[in-house]
């Protein structure tokens, strides 16, 4: 009996297995709880919300919440703009961070250690410190409220979370055998040709990791998007779903005032809006789940 519960050296006991699975399932449920709550609430109509006998399953599949939320958020235009806002800086991030990471990993030059220190420092420093003068700089250049406020830093390797990406590429390229690069050099390739023909094609997993994370982080960044790309004082046309969600209540109320939506703001409409704003990323996650989950492993963040 004891052996059955606690197991022997060779085989894990049933009791231990039950405990592990039980814990995992409980924690998994806790993880999913907010999402389930959100989904179930978002389908409830007014009566279901007030009815105390209905906790989880709504009486009918009520889609009006989604329609109202989508029209208030300008779902399709915001979605497309969000893809542009996250996509272009992501491409630049991949390109520039790869160059810089390769530079750090393969060449020995003076001041490299200092520069890597600076890189780590720029990660630890909260962006709020540099935000104020940067905002001043952008408004002097007249690019607040345009996409350039995201493109410019990304172009110079200082995009959102760029230090992490540079470090990922740095780690990755250090594991590329030097013989490979030297062979290319002996065959007459210059530094850039070696980079483009040998290093880049071998960096697939790292590129994937950086691309996915960069896209997700840019997509979810509401603070900087609202301030730089949308421009707090002069609301421009650039806006993504997350920022729409942040200002959901006010935009919904103005729509209500103009009579475009019939019902008043209830929590199920809010939950529908939340569901809509995370829907695109959820779809992306379920399609690319394997790449996402294994990305950290393969990009070699943990080294060898």
């Amino acid at each position: 009996m004891r052996r059955f519960v606690f197991g022997t050296r060779e085989k894990e006991g049933a009791g231990k297995q039950i405990v592990v699975y039980g814990l995992l399932i409980c924690i998994g449920f806790v993880y999913l709880y907010p999402i389930l709550y959100m989904l179930s609430t978002s389908f409830m109509n007014r009566d279901d919300l007030l009815d105390s006998s209905i906790n989880w399953l709504p009486g009918t599949l009520y889609l009006q919440n989604y329609i109202d939320a989508a029209s208030s958020m300008n779902f399709w235009t915001s979605l497309l703009k969000g893809i542009v806002i996250a996509g272009i800086p992501t491409l630049l991030n991949i390109l520039v961070c790869m160059l810089v990471g390769y530079g750090f990993a393969t060449f020995a030059f003076k001041g490299r250690a200092v520069m890597i220190g600076l890189l780590l420092f720029s990660y630890i420093l909260p962006s709020q410190v540099t935000m104020i003068p940067t905002y001043g700089l952008y408004s002097k250049m007249g690019i607040v409220g345009t996409l350039w406020t995201f493109i410019l830093p990304a172009l110079f390797g200082n995009g959102l979370n760029a230090p992490i990406f540079i470090l990922i590429f740095y780690q990755f390229f250090r594991q590329v055998p030097r013989v490979l690069l030297e062979a290319a050099k002996i065959d007459g390739a210059g530094h850039f040709k070696t980079f483009a023909r040998v290093a880049v094609p071998s960096a697939g997993p790292a590129i994937l990791t950086v691309g996915l994370f960069s896209f997700v982080w840019y997509w979810n960044e509401s603070y900087l998007t609202e301030m730089y790309v949308q421009g707090l004082s002069s609301k421009s046309v650039w806006v993504n779903l997350v920022v729409q969600l942040k200002n959901f209540e006010t935009s919904f109320e103005t729509m209500q005032a103009t009579g475009d939506v019939a019902i008043s703001l209830s929590e199920s409409v809010k939950m529908a809006a939340t569901a809509l704003s995370i829907l695109p990323l959820m779809l992306m996650y379920f399609v690319l789940q394997k790449q996402f989950v294994e990305s950290i492993d393969r990009a070699g963040i943990t080294g060898e």
Partner: peptide
């Protein structure tokens, strides 16, 4: 070459 690669950053 190293400086050239890290120059943008």
């Amino acid at each position: 070459a190293g400086y050239l690669f890290v120059a943008p950053w």
